[in-house]
Computed example of a mutant assay.
Amino acid sequence: MSCKIDNPKKVVAVYNTSSTKHNLTVTTFPYTGLDLKIDGTTYTSPRTLSVDKGTSHTIQVISPQEQDDTSKVSGTDMKYIREMDGRQHG
Rank of each mutant, 00 (worst) to 15 (best):
S2M: 09
C3P: 07
K4E: 15
I5M: 04
I5W: 14
D6A: 07
P8N: 03
K10F: 07
K10S: 09
K10H: 08
K10G: 02
V11P: 10
V12A: 13
V12F: 06
A13V: 09
V14F: 03
Y15C: 06
Y15F: 08
N16T: 03
S18R: 01
S18C: 01
S19Y: 09
S19W: 08
T20K: 15
T20L: 10
H22N: 10
T27W: 06
T27K: 15
T28D: 06
T28P: 04
F29Q: 11
T32D: 15
G33Y: 01
L34C: 05
L34D: 05
D35M: 09
D35P: 03
L36M: 04
I38K: 06
I38Q: 13
D39A: 05
G40F: 10
T41L: 04
T41W: 07
T41E: 12
T42V: 10
T42G: 03
T42M: 05
T42I: 08
Y43R: 01
Y43H: 02
Y43E: 00
Y43V: 00
Y43W: 04
T44G: 05
T44F: 01
S45F: 07
S45Q: 12
S45Y: 12
T48F: 06
T48E: 14
S50M: 09
V51Q: 08
D52W: 09
D52C: 01
D52T: 15
G54T: 01
T55L: 00
T58D: 14
T58E: 15
I59P: 12
Q60V: 02
V61H: 13
V61N: 14
V61L: 07
I62L: 10
I62F: 11
S63L: 11
S63W: 08
P64V: 01
E66N: 12
Q67H: 13
Q67C: 04
Q67K: 08
D68C: 08
D69R: 14
T70K: 12
S71K: 15
S71A: 12
K72I: 04
K72N: 13
V73F: 15
S74F: 09
T76L: 08
D77A: 05
D77T: 01
M78Q: 12
M78Y: 15
Y80F: 13
I81H: 11
R82K: 15
M84Q: 14
D85H: 11
D85Y: 10
R87P: 04
Q88R: 15
Q88A: 14
H89D: 11
G90K: 15
G90C: 06
G90M: 09
